[in-house]
Every structure is written in C-alpha cells, then in structure tokens.
C-alpha cells in the first residue's frame, strides 16, 4: 500500500460511511413514518416470507435500518454498524436476486416504501452491491475518523 493511500484512507472511509449510512437512514425513515402494512405489502411481492411475519417484520426493519444508518452517519460503533449494514445489504441482495431469477413481476423493489424513489429490482441490486462494498471498506478501517467513537473512547485511537 502506498504512503499516499495510507494518508487518504481514513478520510475516505469517513466519507464512504456517509453513503450507505445515509441511504439506510433515509430508507428506514420513509418506511417508519408510513403505515407498516404498506411496507408489508411490498415485502409480500418477494414471495419468500410467510404472511404471518410480514407486518411484524415491516414494523421492525425500518427502525433497524434507521438505527444502523444513523450509527454509520455519526460514527457510533463504526465497525459494528458497518458490518450490520453489510449484513442488511447482503440480505437485500439475496431477496432481490431470487426475485430476478424467478422473474417475479415487480416494478418497485420496495426499498423506500411507498413514499420514496421507486427503483426496479435490477437497479437496486447494483446499488446494494456498491453499498455493501463500501460497508466492507468502512469495516476494514480502524481509524474511524470524524466519528463519535473518537469522543466516546479517545484512548482507542492514540498513536502507538
């Protein structure tokens, strides 16, 4: 690794975590403010989950997305939040891939509920893959620049 990359890596990771974090926080928020049944109906389009779990899941997932997204945005528990976000994007990719493979008739991935931008499953698959890669890049970074983690426990980041 070049010395130059060592210098820019920390700020780059700090910037990179804003993208998956912002997307997660926004997608969670636009779903959390609407009736959970709307998101449940979008989840039903994937034909994966049993009907009984759709509404409970639709009530929970937006809050998890928001929490993980906000943690990434402000840099609280950066590494864990990045791994959690990577896990979420991984699950989304699995859902989208099976929908595409089964050629399910879906015009909207449902990622932003009924309120946000409408993306086709194929578009979202590419977006999620990029966001997953960014999360892994952030998780591999130990510096956690411009993060709350540095305020929470500065001793972790002292030069050795």
């Amino acid at each position: 690794m070049t010395a130059r990359w060592q210098v820019v890596r920390g700020p780059a990771a700090a910037f990179a975590r804003l993208i998956p974090g912002g997307v997660l926080a926004f997608s969670g928020y636009v779903k959390a403010i609407r009736p959970a049944e709307e998101f449940a109906a979008l989840l039903a389009n994937y034909w994966v989950l049993p009907p009984a779990v759709l509404v409970p899941l639709a009530r929970t997932v937006p809050w998890v997305e928001m929490a993980v997204g906000l943690c990434l945005l402000v840099g609280l528990g950066v590494r864990r939040a990045a791994l959690a976000a990577a896990g979420l994007y991984g699950v989304f990719i699995v859902f989208l891939s099976q929908a595409l493979l089964r050629r399910l008739p879906m015009n909207d991935c449902g990622c932003f509920g009924a309120l946000g931008p409408s993306l086709r499953p194929g578009q979202t698959l590419i977006l999620d893959a990029v966001l997953l890669a960014l999360c892994l890049f952030v998780a591999a970074d130990r510096e956690a620049r411009f993060s709350l983690d540095r305020w929470v426990d500065p001793s972790r980041f002292l030069p050795r």
Binding site: P35, E37, E38, A40, A41, A44, P51
Partner: peptide, 9 residues
Amino acid sequence: DRTLVGANQ
C-alpha cells in the same frame, strides 16, 4: 388510522 394494502391483507 390503519391501512390494508392489497387483496391478501
């Protein structure tokens, strides 16, 4: 203030 979306719900 509740919503039912789609025939299944």
